[in-house]
């Protein structure tokens, strides 16, 4: 999923302070799972804003809504009226959804309530961890299913740097495993350690973010 974290309340409040009619729009997909922007988070933020407004003597109408996804145009239909009504939309989707909402309703001010973080998985309840860097050319097969790009702090393709100690990465030993220790251990388990001896050539980064904004066309699905 795409993971995100809610921005600090003060930052959000500053962004929308002049909106008299505010729609807080949640997203029911990834950011609901990582507890950043789903229905419950919308309710929490709306309560906080109403309480803060009341305390500060500001008058503002706040509506709450959550749609299935903000990265697909069709789901906006359900809330089109609310969006039209609002002076500003506070999107609780990832950066994709927040932008797409603005594209779907040109001329509407859409501001983000979340900081989008990474492609991640739920490690355990309440903890999400990065697993993919979206490089556009998956190399997992060469590294025992552990991604050196996402999981090594330096995205090294040819083995660990000198900062690997006791399975931890020197960049933050309390929090980060050394990605290369994980690759090494997995390849050993799979009996494929010798494959790590091959020198990996320069990577083609143009397949991912370095090739400019990405675009995928699936011909048989287009009309």
């Amino acid at each position: 999923m795409i993971t995100a974290e809610r921005k600090p309340f003060g930052e959000i409040a500053d962004m929308v302070q002049d909106a008299k009619k505010l729609l807080i729009l949640g997203c029911g997909s990834c950011v609901t799972v990582c507890m950043a922007g789903g229905e419950k988070e919308v309710a929490m933020l709306a309560s906080a804003m109403r309480l803060a407004n009341r305390k500060a003597g500001r008058k503002a109408d706040i509506r709450e809504a959550t749609i299935e996804r903000q990265c697909d145009r069709e789901w906006f239909d359900k809330v089109a009226e609310d969006i039209e009504w609002a002076d500003a939309v506070l999107s609780m989707a990832c950066g994709v959804g927040a932008q797409f909402c603005g594209e779907a309703f040109e001329g509407k001010r859409v501001v983000p309530a979340l900081n989008t973080k990474f492609y991640g998985a739920t490690e355990r309840q309440g903890v999400w961890v990065e697993r993919c860097a979206g490089c556009g050319k998956c190399v997992l097969a060469d590294f025992g299913g552990v991604c050196p790009i996402a999981r090594c702090s330096k995205s090294l393709l040819n083995g660990p740097c000198g900062g690997s100690q006791d399975g931890k990465c020197e960049v933050d030993p309390d929090r980060l495993d050394c990605g290369w220790q994980l690759i090494h251990d997995r390849m050993k388990l799979l009996g494929l350690l010798d494959r790590l001896e091959a020198v990996q050539p320069l990577k083609d980064w143009s397949a991912g973010g370095d090739g400019g904004p990405g675009r995928i066309v699936r011909e048989d699905a287009t009309l």
Partner: peptide, 11 residues
């Protein structure tokens, strides 16, 4: 001196 030690010579 880094880890994994057995990979150091491979490097």
């Amino acid at each position: 001196f880094g880890d994994p030690f057995e990979f150091r010579v491979v490097r």
